[in-house]
Structure formats: structure tokens, C-alpha cells
Design a protein around this nucleic acid. Structure first.
Lengths: 249, 249
DNA sequence: ACCTGAACACCGTTCAAGT
DNA sequence: ACCTGAACACCGTTCAAGT
């Protein structure tokens, strides 16, 4: 990556710029944005656990201690990474709040999924960026204008965010454990095989419902199952919209 | 804990038993159950991240390598711990499948909550114990007998399990981050304060819905919000029960 | 203020050697 | 088969010392 692999030479004094020049222009200049860049790239390539202060620092040709001028600790660094990912999200345009919710959460799920297990970081985290507030304002506004009671709307948004994060994180974990470079179908097959092995140890007499419905239980792709759950939540919210709240007052 | 802190003496030969006796009867005999015992106790006291092969092994006065005769790796050990916790769960008696689901998932949530962040281990994990199958059989059976289509029943159970695990894990994380020994109210207050600080940077004109509904959005305890989401999911399932499925064939 | 080498107190897992 | 000390290849964070 670096054009000149010049060996480290002792600084001979002068300004910061001069020193960097003399040292052959280090890989990258330190700074919060650059640090988060590197961490996000590591997440995208290998997942959260591949991020270590040492590996990030190495990209700047220095030791881990150098990072502590920009982040208080590793947790804070990872939350900056999450905020970056959240910046990629957007609320679609729609007059129908149900359509808007469906579109948004599917897109949010896709965004998380593009960054491995980054969704895990969203548990119990209040994002720091303004984007989070923009998204909340749009979603909450659309629901309230659609007649959803405020409490129902805000609590439901929390639950949907939790559901999406948990779904993506679990999907990533499954892929890690049951076949890595495999296709969706192959992973499904391997997964079914493991469950079937467990089922094989069971007498059908003791577990009539499980044995009789094995195939249906294991049917469906991850996408289909997610959509099913999301639609159930949206329907649950819709059921709590007061009957005649069509532009009354 | 150990009654006799006898110093390690070199073995002088003889049987295993004789050696143990000569060494002053070690803390505990190695074995899968004993290892899982120790790991679960660590989880209960300090959470999952406090479990290390070294700390578990130390309880047996040995090094981490000794554990690898019983578990393939740390992940497998932790999954045994989760299976132990699942063994504490039970399905209540009820003629009404909705009541049965509500009772079960609330109890499952309480069980997880008694063991710190153990729920995190349930993501993408197929429990190995027979208890898991017992629970599944009872829940699925009750739903099917109640007229819930098989696909809806089994997919919904998956989603509810994910929701419960995510809820408990997130609750634990929140408690870790915003006040540790504090009461529910104090944590709530600290949390509201942090969010309010974030809100303070915002002009009400730009975020009319968020600012106008701040109080309602932040209302409710963790228990209330969980119950709200669970009821929404149960209602979503009930809405998919065919109209006239009251004992028809 | 920013930056760093070295150290501290840990990790999971492997392996040769023992019984 | 079970058990172990030692080693390997890592961790996050702190701190004294530099600029």
C-alpha cells in the first residue's frame, strides 16, 4: 500500500510536517476519522473481533497507545464505527406509514448485513450522530400522522430496532458456524442436517408435534423469516390505531 | 475455600487416588459437570466475559490445558453453560395457548435475567439438551391445537426466542453501562439525562415530533416495554388463526 | 496537545512429555 | 485416556518520557 517502504529514521528536529516528510510520509496521518476508517475496514473484512487496538495502530506504523489520544477505549472506537454505518441508512419516501416502516427496516437490515456483525454493537447503544435523530424524527412523524398513538409508535420503533439488530447478528453468527463460503442453500442444508441428527435421537412417540412438522418448521430463507416477523410487528402496531383516526381534528 | 492450603509436592508414584490424597485432596475433581459448574458460577457473579479457561482451571489448581480433555474450546464450554440455564425453564399449564406463551416467555426472560448476560450465548445456538426439545414440543403443540398454522407457529416461536434473548441481553448491557448498583429508577433517570443532553443540542423546529413527545417516548420500565412487545407478537400470531378453527377435524 | 516504547496483567490454544 | 508446564501468539490499557 505504501509507495515507499523507507525504514524508520530518528527525527532530526523541526516541525511535525518536516518530520513526517523526513520519515518518508507515514502510511496515514493519525486522526479520529482515519482511525475509524481503518477499524471499519477491519470490521468489513473480518468482523468486529478482528478489530484490535494493535492492528488498527499498526496501519499507522505505531503502537496501540497512540490511539488513546482520539478514543477513550476500544468500546468508544467501535461505537464510532457503528455511527458510520448508521450514516448509510435512510428513510424511503412513502405516504403510507406501514410501507415506509417496511422499506426502512429492510434497508436498515441490508445495511447492517453489508458490515458483518456490526449490528451487535447496536445493543444498548444510543447513537451519537445526528443521523439517528433524523431517522427517528421521520419514522415517528410518519407513524403519528398515520394515527398511531405516540407510546405505541415509540415503543414499537425500539422493538423493531432490536429485532432487526438481533436478526442480522444471529444470521451472521449462523453463517460463521455452519459453513463460511457456502451458498444460502448449502448453509441451509448443513443446518438442517445438524438439526436432523439431533432429531434422530428422538422417538416420534415422545415428540409428535416436532417430528410431524419438521419440514415446515425448517422451511423458509432468512429473508422470508425476517419479513414474516417484521410484518407481524407492523400489523401489531396497525391493530392499535384507533378506528376513526382519519384526519380527525 | 480449600480447607488445606498444602503446597504442591511432587508425586511419588502410585494410583491417581493415592496421588490426590498425598497432595492434600485437590479443590475439586476435574470433569465436565464440575467445569460447567465453575463456569456458570463465574457467569452468575461477573458475566460471560469473566469466564476464561485460566480462571476456570485455577479453581481446580491446574492450568488451562487440562480443560481441553472435556471441551473442545471455550465456545463449547459456554454452550454447556447455556444448556444448564435452559434446564431451569419450564412451560406453565394452561388451556389457552396465548396465556401459555405469555407465561413461558416471561419465565424464560426471568431465568435468563438471573444469569447476567447468558442470553447472549443463545444467538445462533441450537441447544444440545433434551429440555430444548421438551419445551419446543409443548409450545408448538399448544399453538397447533389452538388452531395456529404450523408455519406461523414455528416461525413465531423462533422470533419470540430471538426477541426474549435480545431484550435480556440489551437490558443487561444497559445496566452495565448506566449505573451498576443503582436501582431501576436511578438507572432510568441517568439514562434519560444522557438522552436529554443529546436532545438539548437540537432545535425543536428541526425535530418537532421527537421534542414534543420526549416524555412519552422515554416512559415505561423495561418490564412494561417487554410485555408490550411480547403481546404484540402474540396478537400477531392470533390474527393468523383461521376464523373457524374450533375443533374442526 | 500529541505521540510513543515498554511494561503490566492478562488472553485461547497447542504441544511435547508425562502417568 | 487423562493430565500438565511451558510456550506461542496474541490482547487492552497505563505510564513515564519525549516533542
Amino acid at each position: 500500500m505504501a509507495p515507499s517502504p523507507s525504514p524508520r529514521r530518528p527525527a532530526v528536529g523541526g516541525t511535525e510536517k518536516a518530520r513526517a516528510k523526513a520519515a518518508g510520509r507515514r502510511h496515514r496521518a493519525l486522526g479520529l476519522d482515519a482511525i475509524v476508517d481503518v477499524a471499519l475496514r477491519l470490521v468489513d473484512r473480518e468482523g468486529i473481533d478482528a478489530v484490535s487496538m494493535r492492528r488498527v495502530a499498526a496501519e499507522f506504523d505505531t503502537g496501540p497507545a497512540s490511539l488513546y489520544a482520539y478514543v477513550a477505549n476500544k468500546e468508544e472506537l467501535l461505537h464510532h464505527v457503528l455511527d458510520r454505518v448508521i450514516d448509510e441508512m435512510a428513510v424511503p419516501e412513502s405516504d403510507d406509514w406501514q410501507e415506509l416502516l417496511r422499506g426502512y427496516w429492510h434497508a436498515a437490515r441490508d445495511t447492517y448485513a453489508r458490515h458483518n456483525d456490526v449490528a451487535r454493537l447496536s445493543f444498548a447503544h444510543i447513537p451519537g450522530g445526528a443521523k439517528f435523530l433524523d431517522l427517528g424524527e421521520r419514522l415517528l412523524g410518519a407513524m403519528i400522522e398515520g394515527g398511531v398513538p405516540v407510546k405505541v409508535a415509540s415503543w414499537a420503533l425500539d422493538i423493531m430496532a432490536l429485532y432487526v439488530a438481533a436478526d442480522v447478528f444471529e444470521g451472521w453468527l449462523f453463517r460463521q458456524r455452519y459453513g463460511d463460503g457456502l451458498s444460502e442453500e448449502e448453509i441451509g442444508a448443513e443446518f438442517v442436517e445438524k438439526l436432523t441428527r439431533q432429531f434422530a435421537q428422538i422417538t416420534p412417540a415422545a415428540y409428535p408435534y416436532l417430528t410431524a412438522n419438521r419440514e415446515v418448521m425448517m422451511s423458509g430463507s432468512g429473508d422470508e423469516r425476517f419479513a414474516f416477523g417484521l410484518d407481524m410487528l407492523i400489523a401489531g402496531v396497525a391493530a392499535q390505531v384507533p378506528p376513526r383516526s382519519r384526519r380527525t381534528r
